[in-house]
Simulated assay, not measured.
Amino acid sequence: MIRAMILVLTLIAAVPAAAVQPDEILSDPALEARARELSARVRCLVCQNQSIDDSNADLARDLRKLVRERLVAGAGDQQVLDYLTDRYGPFVLLEPPRMRSTWLLWYGPFALLGLGAAGIAVAAMVRARRREAPEPLSAEEQSRLEALLSDEAAEADGTREAPR
């Protein structure tokens, strides 16, 4: 029982706390839910690895207010994101758009994974070829080899003259 309680408390403590201040919260719960969902998709330009919903930076607070102002003014979710992207560039989005300039970001890891898999496959084939035992020599090949080796041995000993 105590272990279960410790586990639950640990999981609760691991959930990131939102940095939204009470004075920022909208009175309309539906608009507030949309604002929180949008804030979770927008990058804090100071922290860079946090959403503005999780960041305590002053700029993040300003961006949260801006999102809420745009929603209260009647802007749709995509309009708010487009406004922020126009103003701060695509970097402001935690999930960058799929466009030509971000293809490497989106598809580069898959390309590297494919290259790595191909490299591993080639290395495995090379190892397998090295491990294969060569076919044994036929009787004729064996006798030719022995003759060549004996000729080389005789030349090395000086008992036979090298051909000219």
Score class of each variant (00 low, 15 high):
M5A: 12
L7W: 14
L7S: 15
V8T: 11
L9M: 14
T10Q: 13
T10A: 15
L11G: 12
I12P: 00
A13F: 10
A13Y: 10
A14S: 14
V15I: 06
V15Q: 09
P16N: 10
P16K: 01
A17T: 15
A19E: 02
A19I: 01
V20Q: 13
V20H: 07
Q21L: 15
E24L: 02
I25H: 03
L26A: 04
L26D: 12
S27T: 15
D28L: 06
P29W: 02
P29G: 02
P29L: 03
A30G: 04
A30S: 06
A30Q: 11
L31I: 00
E32G: 01
A33F: 07
R34F: 01
A35R: 00
R36Q: 08
R36Y: 04
E37F: 11
L38N: 03
L38C: 04
S39I: 00
V42G: 02
V46Q: 07
C47T: 12
Q48W: 10
Q48I: 12
Q48M: 15
D53Y: 11
D53N: 06
S55N: 01
A57P: 00
L59A: 10
A60E: 01
R61N: 08
D62P: 00
D62H: 12
L66P: 11
L66T: 11
R68W: 03
E69T: 10
E69N: 10
V72R: 05
V72Y: 04
G74N: 04
G76F: 09
G76L: 14
Q78L: 09
Q78G: 09
L81G: 05
L81N: 02
D82A: 05
Y83E: 15
D86H: 05
R87E: 13
Y88M: 01
Y88A: 06
F91E: 13
F91I: 09
V92Q: 02
V92H: 00
L94P: 00
P96L: 14
P97N: 00
P97D: 06
R98E: 12
R100P: 00
R100V: 04
W103D: 06
L104C: 11
Y107N: 05
Y107T: 05
F110I: 09
A111N: 01
G116P: 07
A117M: 09
A118K: 03
